[in-house]
């Protein structure tokens, strides 16, 4: 009997998280090689619309796991509903997008089934009948191929951008949808409504040019030099997480998975090593220039133009050259 891949798509407040399409694309690629069947599950309450949306894609079946107790996300609610369902269905592989919500409950779910999650994968390999999942380690300095040793069900989550969501295959006809009355255990946490902090004054997503600083800037006082470069270029200043954690720039200027996702014409990365959490927030930039003294820094893997060198030597003459170019233009 063919094995099953179960995709748990993500919904928040009754809306499908688009990153779910990427997971389905990944599952479709795995299924094409393994011959396994793809099914999908949606968890929540009042999710018929989402189930129908997913059923239009090339999947064999969609399950809608519903309960009033699943109206708001809680790790207890989602893990227990899926635990019952997965124990019954016995898929070989369970795939989810690597979102903050999935990070919150997926390890618990896998452990409750005596299994494990390979998280944050950027791809997979199917070699000699074996599935390996590729993920970054050591902040992106290395990639690792990781295998499951147990019987399953195996769990893996895919990093944002691991597959193309716009390449998800449509189904020839709508897949059948089965409604499942989810069994939900005691929910011990009481979540309040999600909210945004006071309106952000800076919308980096609209910036055409971004000069972004990382740990390589070393000291708070050096931020000023990066600001001068941003000013000369007519762009915005931004930073990776550690800089904002240190309070050197406000949180609203943070680019990355916990900050803003940007796609400017030019992203100039100063002293940014390129941890995956940062990369996901800027890899869509049209042109990426990286200046870093560490030739091994992962940022260079996605850079269009690379300068291996000391940013403190390079940025001052760069500011002058930019000013000259602007004056001449």
């Amino acid at each position: 009997m063919a094995e099953t891949i179960l995709i748990v798509v993500e919904q928040r407040e009754g809306k499908l998280n688009r990153v779910s399409w990427e997971t389905i694309t990944g599952a479709q690629a795995i299924a094409a090689q393994t011959g396994w069947t793809i099914e999908a599950a949606v968890v929540g309450n009042g999710i018929a619309g989402i189930a129908a949306e997913v059923a239009a894609k090339s999947v064999a079946k969609v399950y809608a796991l519903e309960s009033p107790k699943l109206a708001a996300y809680t790790p207890d609610g989602f893990a227990s509903a899926l635990k019952q369902f997965i124990a019954q269905r016995q898929p070989k592989l369970v795939l989810m997008p690597h979102t903050y919500q999935v990070r919150d409950f997926c390890p618990k779910l896998a452990a409750s089934l005596g299994s494990t999650v390979i998280p944050d994968c950027i791809g997979y390999k199917y070699e000699g009948g074996r599935l390996l999942f590729t993920r970054q380690m050591f902040q992106g300095k290395f990639a690792a191929d990781v295998s499951f040793t147990g019987q399953g069900p195996w769990f893996a989550t895919f990093q944002n951008g691991a597959f193309r969501g716009d390449q998800v295959q449509e189904g020839a006809s709508a897949a059948p949808i089965e409604n499942v009355a989810a069994e939900v255990a005691d929910v011990r946490t009481s979540p309040e409504e999600p909210f945004k902090e006071a309106k952000q004054a800076v919308d980096l997503t609209q910036a055409e040019i971004i000069v972004s600083v990382g740990r390589g800037i070393k000291e708070q006082k050096n931020i000023d030099m990066a600001k001068q470069l941003a000013d000369a270029l007519g762009g915005e200043i931004a930073a990776s997480r550690p800089i904002c954690d240190s309070g050197w720039l406000p949180m609203e200027r943070q680019v990355g998975s916990s900050g803003q996702t940007v796609a400017p014409k030019l992203y100039l990365a100063l002293g940014i090593s390129g941890a995956i959490q940062h990369i996901v927030g800027m890899k869509g930039s049209r042109s990426i220039v990286a200046i870093n003294k560490d030739a091994e820094a992962p940022i260079f893997e996605i850079a269009d133009i690379a300068v291996v060198g000391n940013l403190f030597d390079i940025v001052p003459p760069l500011i002058e050259e930019v000013k000259k170019a602007k004056a001449g233009a």
């Binding site: 299994s115 494990t116 390979i118 390996l132 970054q136 380690m137 992106g140 300095k141 290395f142 990639a143 690792a144 191929d145 990781v146 295998s147 499951f148 040793t149 147990g150 992962p298 893997e301």
Partner: peptide, 10 residues
């Protein structure tokens, strides 16, 4: 339950 089979420079 899982094993790093190979670590390499991406």
């Amino acid at each position: 339950l899982q094993k790093v089979e190979k670590l390499y420079v991406p």
